[in-house]
C-alpha cells in the first residue's frame, strides 16, 4: 500500500528526514516512536503534503502512485488521512457543512454520484456513535472552542466519515487524559479493517496499550534505527530512548 524509500526532507534549509524507509501493507498498524526532534511530525507533514517541507531525495509510492506528485487534496482523495497533532480552529464553518463538502469532493474525484442527504445524515449518526461524539459538538464550527480531547475526537470522527485507506495519527495521544485516550483509541480500533492501514506516531508507549501495533519502529535523527514487534514499545518504555542512542553508539 505505502512504500517510502530513502526519504530525505528539509524545512527551511534544515534536513530533518535523512533516509527514511518504510513499507506498510493493508491491514497493518505501524507505530513510529521517537524522541523529540527525531522527525516524527515532519514525516506526517510530508505524507500529507504540507508545502513548507521540501523533499530532496527518495520517493513515496502509495497504491502505485507517486505521492509526492499529488496535491494535499488529491492525496486525501486517494485515501490518505492525517489526524493533526494541533487541529486548527475554523470559526464559522460547521463540521457538518465541512464534511458534506469533503465527501462530495472525494466522491466526485472517484467518479461516484453525490451522496444522498439522507444517507449522509445516517452515516453521521452511525459514526458519531462509533467515536462517542455528541451532536452538540458536530453542530459547532470546526474545532472552535473545543477542548484538547474534543479536537482529537473530532479528528477521529472525520477519519470515520472519510473512510481512508491509510490513516496517519500524529501524536493523537498528546494532551489527552486517560478517558479521552480510551475513546479515541477505541474509535481507531473499530475502524480497523483488513483493507486499511494506520501509522501511529507517538512519543509515549501508553497509546499503544490501546491501539496494538503490528510493528514498532524507532525514529532517530531522521531515519528508522530499530524495528520490531509490539514488545519493542514496552522495551522502550522501560529503558527509555537513551538505550537506543547508546546502542547506536556502541555499534
Amino acid at each position: 500500500m505505502l512504500k517510502i524509500n530513502n526519504l530525505h526532507a528539509r524545512v527551511e534549509e534544515k534536513e530533518i528526514l535523512k533516509g527514511f524507509s518504510l513499507e506498510v501493507k493493508p491491514g497493518e498498524v505501524h507505530a513510529i516512536m521517537g524522541p523529540n526532534g527525531s522527525g516524527k511530525s515532519t514525516l506526517a507533514s510530508v505524507l500529507a503534503g504540507r508545502e513548507d517541507y521540501e523533499v530532496t531525495e527518495g520517493e513515496i509510492i502509495f497504491e502505485g502512485k507517486d505521492l509526492l506528485e499529488l496535491s494535499p487534496e488529491d492525496r486525501a482523495r486517494e485515501g490518505i488521512f492525517l489526524a493533526f497533532q494541533y487541529p486548527v480552529e475554523i470559526p464559522g464553518v460547521s463540521i457538518t457543512n465541512f464534511l458534506k463538502t469533503a465527501i462530495a469532493e472525494q466522491r466526485e474525484y472517484k467518479g461516484l454520484p453525490p451522496m444522498e442527504a439522507r444517507e449522509f445524515l445516517q452515516m453521521m449518526k452511525e459514526k458519531k456513535e462509533l467515536v462517542e461524539i455528541s451532536t452538540n459538538l458536530t453542530n459547532r464550527s470546526v474545532n472552535e472552542g473545543f477542548s484538547g480531547g474534543e479536537k482529537k475526537r473530532n479528528e477521529i470522527f472525520q477519519m470515520a466519515m472519510l473512510n481512508p485507506k491509510l490513516s496517519i495519527l500524529d501524536e493523537t495521544d498528546s494532551g489527552l487524559d486517560i478517558d479521552a485516550l480510551r475513546v479515541v483509541a477505541n474509535g481507531v480500533n473499530k475502524l480497523k479493517t483488513p483493507e486499511n492501514a494506520s501509522i501511529v506516531i507517538t512519543h509515549y508507549q501508553r497509546l499503544l496499550d490501546y491501539i496494538v501495533p503490528d510493528f514498532v519502529h524507532v525514529l532517530y535523527n531522521g531515519r528508522i534505527v530499530k524495528s520490531g514487534g509490539k514488545e519493542l514499545a514496552l522495551e522502550l518504555e522501560e529503558k527509555g530512548y537513551d538505550w537506543i542512542t547508546k546502542e547506536l553508539v556502541n555499534n
Binding site: 504540507r50 488521512f81 475554523i90 464559522g92 464553518v93 463538502t101 469533503a102 469532493e105 472525494q106 470546526v142
Partner: peptide, 28 residues
Amino acid sequence: DPEQMFYLRSRGLSISKAKALLLSAYAG
C-alpha cells in the same frame, strides 16, 4: 490563513472549495 487552508485541503477540498468555505464563514 494558510493553516486553515491546509487543514481543509487535507480532507480533500480543492483550493477553490476551501477558499469558498473560509470566505463564506468570514462574510457570515
